[in-house]
Every structure is written in C-alpha cells, then in structure tokens.
Simulated assay, not measured.
Amino acid sequence: MSAQAFWDKTADLIAVTEKHPFLVAMVDGTLDIESFRYYVVQDALYLADFADCLRRLAKNEGVSAQDSERLNSFAKGAEEAELSLHRSFFVEWKISADGAEQMPNCLLYTSYMKRIVATKCHAEGLAVLLPCFWVYMHVGQCMLKLREELGSSVKRPGSYDAWIDMYGGEDFEKEVKDYIAMVDTACKGADETTLKEMEKHFVMSCKLEHMFWDQAQTRMEWPKIVAEGK
C-alpha cells in the first residue's frame, strides 16, 4: 500500500471537495470578502497547530536525522510561506488573529490531528497530516485551471489570486511531493494493522478538510450562551 492508495480511497470525496462552493466562489469572484477573512483567520490558527504537529513528528524516537530535518523544514514552510501570506492579508485588512479562537470545525480538525500525533505511531502521525498538503495542492491546481478557463474578464480580489497562486504553484507542489514520498517510505515499513489505521486517519482528515471550508462558507460560530435574566 502507498499514499496513492489512501488518495484513491477518498476519490469521491475529493471530487466533491474540489468543487466546493467556497473555493469556486473564490475563483469566479463571487465570494464575500468577509467569508474569506473569516477563513484566513481560522486557517492561521490551524496552521500554528499543524506546524507544531510537524515538529513533534520530527522529535519521534527512531526518526532519521534526515527525516527530522525535513519535517522541521515543512513546519518552517508552513510558518514562513503560508502564514506569511495570511499575515500579509491581515496587514492589508488592518486586522489581527490575536485573541481569535478556533471555531467548531477548526477545533475538531486540530484536536484530531494533535491526538493522533501525540498518541499513535510515527507512520499514523504522518498520514493524518498528509491531506493538509495534498488536498490543498489538488484544489489549488483545480482552481488555477478554472481561473485560466474563466479568463481575464473575471475580476476578483488580489488576495484570492495570491491564495490560488500559492497552493496551485510549483513550489508548493514540490513540498507536497516530498511529504508524499516520506509517507510512502513509512507505508513500506508498516504492518497491515498500521496501514489500515493510516488510511483511516487520512480519510478522516480529508473529511475535516471539506468541513473546514463548510465552516468558512457559513462563518460558523460557537453558540451564544446568555445567562438567564440577562
């Protein structure tokens, strides 16, 4: 079994995710900018936990020095490339993610991946983080293709184009392929039980990726609790 087998297992879900209304609306320019701002704040909070998970994997017992260095570089890339893009948006919008809290689907996703990384074997930890790389590359490339098909007549905020350029670009693709290769290596050394668990985590993270955009589309909030008599 390989990482490709995990991807093939989720083919139907991926086919739906690449056409998610939130993503399509980014490309055709109809997405409400407030929904995008909500998404960027939540994604910045997510990426901080994602980078932390990568660094935790890098410290696992038995991880080679080369893999440890690469995992740390992935974490650094998430912070310096992806988060720097988000911060550039914050500067443009004159807002900050300081004090923001993870909304339900974001917290569900980060809690799940942090639990797997903290309590399961290294191979399972690699698998649970893979969809964040692979799904983003895939939808970024799909969005890049749709943008080209729609042509220059469609106007959209520059922040949407910057997002599409990053995740649909060659630099991000190289990072993703390097991470996939690392997962493939882990698959070769895994027994059947571990492979099934890796597949389960990969599928769950793909579901949570889709739900992350559901959350952004509706701008989901925590229930408002008002004291009786207030």
Rank of each mutant, 00 (worst) to 15 (best):
W7K: 10
D8P: 00
T10W: 05
D12W: 04
L13E: 04
L13S: 15
L13M: 15
L13H: 06
V16F: 06
T17F: 13
T17V: 09
E18K: 13
K19Q: 13
H20Q: 02
H20S: 04
F22Q: 02
V24N: 03
V27R: 01
D28P: 02
G29C: 03
G29H: 00
T30G: 01
E34R: 14
S35Q: 10
S35A: 14
S35H: 13
F36S: 01
F36C: 04
R37G: 10
R37V: 01
R37A: 11
Y38R: 15
Y39K: 05
V41T: 04
D43N: 10
D43Q: 02
L45W: 07
L45P: 06
A51P: 08
A51M: 02
D52G: 08
C53H: 02
C53E: 04
L54H: 11
L54A: 08
R55W: 07
R56D: 09
A58Q: 07
N60T: 12
N60R: 15
S64A: 05
A65K: 09
D67Q: 15
E69Q: 14
R70T: 12
R70D: 01
N72A: 05
E79D: 14
E80H: 09
L83S: 10
S84Q: 08
H86I: 02
S88I: 11
S88G: 08
F89P: 05
F89H: 09
F89G: 06
V91Q: 14
